[in-house]
Design a protein around this nucleic acid. Structure first.
Length: 273
DNA sequence: ACTAACCTGTAA
DNA sequence: TTACAGGTTAGT
């Protein structure tokens, strides 16, 4: 499911409801979805703490609790976080229920890839999976020069480089294909063959497509929903993702589909060089 | 730097 | 029945 725009939308919709609320009880339906820090149990760490703020880093959601504990959540492909104002029976794939002083948050995930980890807030960026992430693509510090530097001396395909979270945090299969289309760059270009101008164009395309995704409240191509259970609308604006075999909306050429970096990849061989 | 593995559901 | 799906990571 969620790439940067989707996680950002979940962050916003969740924060509206749960900021400043106390977590009164945790129900672990499938306990493997969570893990505590060192030998402490997740439930004991989290129960009784108040939610201070919700941040995001790449595709990770950071739920900051009082007394320096943070929950780091990753939805992987099909994870969901839903807020319910009233008591709600867990559904088939609900793994964790957070009962708050007002309402409940349910974490569910059909494919069981998503995880929620509890970690002391000061250790978030040094001891967790956030440690290796590349820059945030929508922050001012992310410039074309930074992108060029992140590519470094790599010789990998553009597709692989942009999916690599240590190069740049937050892009996934949908937004990579869309950004490459916008930039007019072929996914199988080697990153070391890009000109300064092409890097600038790519940088601009990345920022534009991610911002457009956020403005549309995410892409509900399949089962993505925000914390209110609402769909996004960016699926209506997709130029290439999911359109393999259909005509390019710019030049009319049939869109190419092939496997690249282990992922289904769609592009226009005429518009993208 | 690539592939398999982690899971379940859905579409071909 | 098989391939593939928004992601990451361990192993080769």
């Amino acid at each position: 499911m969620p790439e940067l725009p989707e996680v950002e939308t979940i962050r916003r919709t969740l924060a509206e409801h749960v900021t400043d609320l106390k977590i009164e009880e945790i129900k672990l339906i499938w306990a493997a979805a969570v893990h505590g820090w060192e030998d402490k149990k997740f439930e004991d760490l989290v129960t009784g703490r108040r939610i201070k703020t919700i941040d995001r880093r790449g595709k990770y959601l950071m739920i900051l609790l009082e007394d320096d504990l943070t929950l780091i959540a990753h939805m992987r492909m099909t994870g969901h976080l839903n807020y319910y104002a009233d008591h709600q029976e867990p559904e088939k794939h609900t793994h964790v229920v957070f009962r708050l002083e007002r309402g409940e948050v349910h974490f569910s995930d059909v494919r069981k890839f998503g995880r929620i980890q509890a970690i002391p807030t000061p250790l978030c960026f040094s001891e967790s999976s956030l440690r290796k992430l590349g820059p945030e693509p929508l922050e001012d510090e992310f410039t074309p020069a930074v992108l060029k530097k992140r590519f470094g001396k790599k010789k990998v395909f553009l597709k692989a480089a942009l999916l690599d979270q240590t190069v740049l945090a937050g892009m996934g299969n949908i937004y990579v294909d869309e950004a490459l289309f916008l930039a007019g760059l072929s996914p199988d270009r080697r990153v070391d063959t890009l000109s300064e101008q092409e890097i600038s164009k790519l940088h601009q395309a990345i920022q534009n497509v991610l911002q457009a995704g956020i403005d549309a409240r995410g892409t509900s191509y399949r089962d993505y929903r925000d914390a209110n259970g609402e769909k996004g609308s960016f699926q209506e604006a997709l130029q290439v993702y999911g359109r393999g075999g259909k005509p390019c909306q710019v030049c009319g050429q049939v869109l190419e589909r092939k496997r690249l970096a282990g992922r289904g990849t769609v592009y226009c061989s005429r518009c993208q060089r």
